[in-house]
């Protein structure tokens, strides 16, 4: 019985390993192939040297960063406030945050085209009129469902009301209560919300392409038509980055758990 389940486990692991790793391995080989024969790193160095790809990499990383910051600034205080002061609004906020999951990208784009005329108009005043960073407002909305889930779980794990009231009775205003008491205790939730949001933003193609902005995925698709190995290398790099982020996340949350329960490490 146990032997058979163990054997089954190994077989499944191998099958899934092949299913996931084989394409990655094949892409890696492809990205290292030199057109004439032999190996070359040219496709990988192109990520930072190609004058079409490199700006797109920067745009996507910038979008990821700005979107995560905006998303956290928007969501963390709102969720804390709703839990403490407006519990009746909790279902509503949850509904609003999950809504983007149910709306197709095409509908979002059609709906937002008109609004974006104004967004780019106002961004023009700070010199960002043409910048793809304008996409960040849509991306914040896109990341809400995932971020909401992660934050909601970690907020549920603490006795928010008692901790906040204790902090306030000790003299903490709302800002200090949030930054010194709540945030340190939902840190792992914020981290996972951020990493999932980064993954979503780096992998986004449809909206950027429909809105006519050149982010990483759009350029990867474009390049795919002319320079196969480079576009594959860039895709792989995105996947690897996501993988590293998830690894960091699991290490960070595990370290944190040990810190709280074991306590010996500071």
């Amino acid at each position: 019985m146990t032997r058979r389940t163990r054997a089954l486990r190994v077989v499944l692991l191998v099958l899934f390993g092949i299913f996931f790793l084989l394409p990655i391995y094949a892409s890696a080989l492809f990205s290292l192939r030199r057109p004439g024969g032999g190996h070359s790193m040219a496709a990988w160095t192109a990520i930072v040297s190609d004058d079409q790809l490199y700006p797109a990499v920067l745009v996507s990383l910038g979008l990821a960063f700005v979107s995560v910051v905006l998303m956290l600034l928007l969501l963390v205080p709102t969720m804390i406030w709703v839990r403490l002061r407006a519990p009746w609004a909790r279902r509503l906020v949850e509904f609003l945050c999950l809504l983007p999951l149910t709306i197709p990208a095409l509908v979002i784009v059609v709906g937002l085209k008109g609004v974006y005329a104004w967004v780019t108009y106002f961004l023009g005043f700070i010199g960002l009129g043409e910048s793809a960073l304008a996409l960040t407002f849509i991306y914040v909305v896109l990341t809400l469902p995932y971020a909401y889930r992660a934050l909601d779980t970690s907020l549920s794990a603490i006795d928010l009301q008692t901790l906040a009231e204790a902090a306030r009775s000790l003299g903490a205003g709302w800002t200090a209560t949030i930054t010194r008491v709540v945030v340190p205790n939902i840190w792992s939730g914020m981290l996972s919300a951020s990493f999932i949001a980064i993954a979503v933003v780096l992998g986004e193609y449809t909206i950027a392409s429909l809105m006519g902005y050149q982010n990483l995925q759009v350029v990867i698709v474009l390049l795919g038509k002319t320079d196969g190995p480079t576009s594959v290398a860039a895709s792989l790099a995105t996947i690897l980055l996501g993988f590293v982020l998830l690894l960091v996340l699991s290490l960070a949350t595990r370290g944190r758990r040990r810190h709280v329960v074991g306590g010996a490490v500071r």
Binding site: E165, A166, S169, L170, A172, N185, V260
Partner: peptide, 20 residues
């Protein structure tokens, strides 16, 4: 006067130490 300016020490029924 808001709670954080009242200078009152409070012990709660629920455990309220800051876990971090």
């Amino acid at each position: 006067v808001p709670a954080n300016k009242r200078d009152m020490g409070m012990v709660f029924q629920a455990y309220s130490l800051f876990p971090h």
